[in-house]
Each structure stands twice: as C-alpha cells, then as structure tokens.
C-alpha cells in the first residue's frame, strides 16, 4: 500500500449526498410526464388562470408527485435494490439514507398540498393529497406486494394529474376531467405489462407479484389485449367531449387502431416466438405506448389552440 493510499484510507468519510441525489428521489422522469399531463388538463379547461397561478399550480402538482416518488423510494428500497432497473436509485445505491427519503417525501407532501390550496382552490389540494396518499400508501405499501392487479390500481395515481390541472382552473370535476383520468388509467396496464414481458427477471427476482409471475405470460398477453380494447372507447369518448374535435377524433382513431394491432400481435405470440426475436414486438409496443399517450395529450392541447383561433372543437 502506498503512503497516499494509506492516507486516503485513513480519511475515508461516509458518502455526502449532493443536491442532485435528493432531486433523483423525486423521480424527475415521472415528474416530466406529470407536468405535461397536468399542464394539458389546466390549459384545455374552459376557465383560464393567471399565468403566475398556473405556473404555481403545475409546480406544486409536480412537487406532490415528486414527494410521493420519494415516499415510494423509502418504502421500496429493499425491492429496488434487487431489480436491475431500479438498483441505481439513491436509496438502494446508498447515496441517501432511507429516513432522509421519508423526511423529504413528508415535507414536500405537506408543502405541495398547502401551497396548491393557497394558489388555486381546496378541491385541487384535496385531490393532490389523495393522489399522494393513494400512491404512497394504497399502491406502494399495500397493493404492490399483495396483488397482481397492482399495476391496474396503481395506475390511478398517475392518472390524477390532468384531473387536478382541470380542477385547478375550474374548481370542479367534469366528464372531460374523468375521461383524461380514464385515458391514463386504462393505458397504464398494457404499458407496464408489455414492459414486464421483456423485463421478466427483474420482477421475478424482487418477488413482486406481477401478472407475468403469478398468472403466467400467456395470461399477461391476454390482459394486454383486453385492457387495450377497453382503452379504445375511453380515448374515443374523450375526443367527442368539449376538449376534443375533428382533429382529436382523427388522431384518436389512428392511434387506437395502431395500439390494438400491437396488442393483437402480442396476444398471438408465445414465448418461443418472443425469445426468437428478443421480444421485438413487445418492445415496439412499449415504445409506441409512450408515443400514444404523448400524442393524445398533445392533440388535446392543439385542439384547444385551434378552438381559440376559431377553427377547432365541435
């Protein structure tokens, strides 16, 4: 051992987390989806907010989502450490203590709910509080480890942001807000089950009762198809409400036809075929599912812009 190495060893200190490590606790990638869908919900609403209020609303909805992400990382540190996809998160990687993640999650939950209530209205704040509770307690602590339908119910937490955005502007829940909620809620199961089909070892190792583990891969393929078919009327229905119009309907028809074809191809395959091409169809379906959701919400926004120019909408 050299003198330098001996010196460094003697001065070894525990890892000091940087600001970025705490930001990673908030799951920035999930937050970006929350920001986008909440912003669409807020902008397509028939009532407009002052830009400062709108900015604050989106910021605190995103912060609430981040808080629930931190609480999830605190609770799930043991299974995150086992799964390849999540092993580098700050808590399982040892960069942030689990207790710190809990403290960050609780503090940001309180701040985001109170500030959203002050910036917009109490209904929006109550919905945000319920969303955090739903994701952290109902999904993470209760259902994730106890039922293969975890993804279906957990999907509700991710579906609330556009509804909260709408409620921030209008102060009430409407059919449009429910259909935006329904779109993400019904989209989540096929999206995650397609991922589970080609990331099979991860969930199996962690002992999470994913449908692929409990009911087998054939049943998962059937579920992907069934949920995709159930998603279609929700997506088309949203296009027929006041947030839709001819453009939204046309885009919804094309996207859903494509999605159903993808789900049908997944349903038709067996494991031998999937392993032969390294799950190419499942991976393509998963990638398209991301585009599917983005384009749906982008089209709601485009339709609102067209409507304000006097050409869009019904």
């Amino acid at each position: 051992m050299s003198d330098t190495a001996a010196y460094q060893g003697a001065n070894a200190t525990p890892y000091e987390p940087g600001f970025g490590d705490y930001v990673l606790l908030l799951k920035p990638r999930v937050m970006s989806l929350v920001v986008f869908t909440a912003l669409v919900g807020l902008l397509v609403a028939p009532v407009s907010l002052h830009p400062v209020e709108a900015f604050a609303a989106i910021l605190f909805i995103a912060l609430g989502a981040g808080a629930s992400g931190a609480l999830n990382m605190w609770w799930d540190a043991d299974i995150d450490a086992v799964m390849k996809r999540t092993a580098r998160r700050p808590v399982p990687a040892g960069r942030v203590q689990a207790g710190e993640a809990l403290a960050v999650g609780l503090a940001l939950s309180g701040i985001s709910v109170v500030m959203l209530g002050l910036a917009t209205n109490l209904m929006a704040a109550a919905l945000l509080a319920f969303t955090i509770f739903f994701y952290a307690v109902v999904y993470s602590m209760w259902l994730k480890r106890s039922t293969p339908q975890n993804i279906v119910i957990g999907g509700a937490a991710g579906a609330f942001p556009p509804m909260i955005g709408w409620v921030c502007a209008t102060g009430s829940i409407s059919v449009e807000a429910c259909l935006m909620f329904g779109l993400i809620f019904m989209w989540t199961p096929p999206h995650f089950w397609a991922l589970a089909l080609f990331m099979k070892e991860d969930y199996h190792r962690a002992g999470v009762p994913m449908l692929t583990v409990t009911h087998g891969r054939k049943a998962t393929r059937v579920h992907v198809l069934v949920y995709t078919l159930l998603l279609v009327p929700v997506a088309i229905g949203a296009a027929l409400t006041s947030i839709g119009g001819p453009l939204t309907l046309a885009v919804a028809v094309v996207l859903n036809a494509w999605f159903v074809v993808g789900a049908f191809r997944i349903w038709r395959r067996d494991e031998t075929m999937a392993e032969a091409d390294n799950y190419a169809v499942e991976k393509a379906f998963f990638r398209f599912s991301l585009l599917y959701l983005f384009l749906h919400f982008a089209t709601f926004l485009a339709e609102a812009a067209l409507k304000s120019a006097g050409v869009g909408g019904w």
Binding site: E16, P17, G18, F19, G20, Y22, V52, F55, A56, L59
Partner: peptide
C-alpha cells in the same frame, strides 16, 4: 456539501419569489 447548500438556497429563494408573485 456546497452544491447541496447552493441548491437548497436557490430553491428557497425561488420559493420566496413565487409566494411574493402569488
């Protein structure tokens, strides 16, 4: 530690500015 303190400081300053604007 400096990066953490700087990040927290800037976040708090931004929060104060936002509350003032609201």
């Amino acid at each position: 530690r400096f990066s953490r303190n700087l990040g927290l400081g800037l976040t708090l300053a931004a929060f104060v500015a936002l509350v003032f604007a609201l």
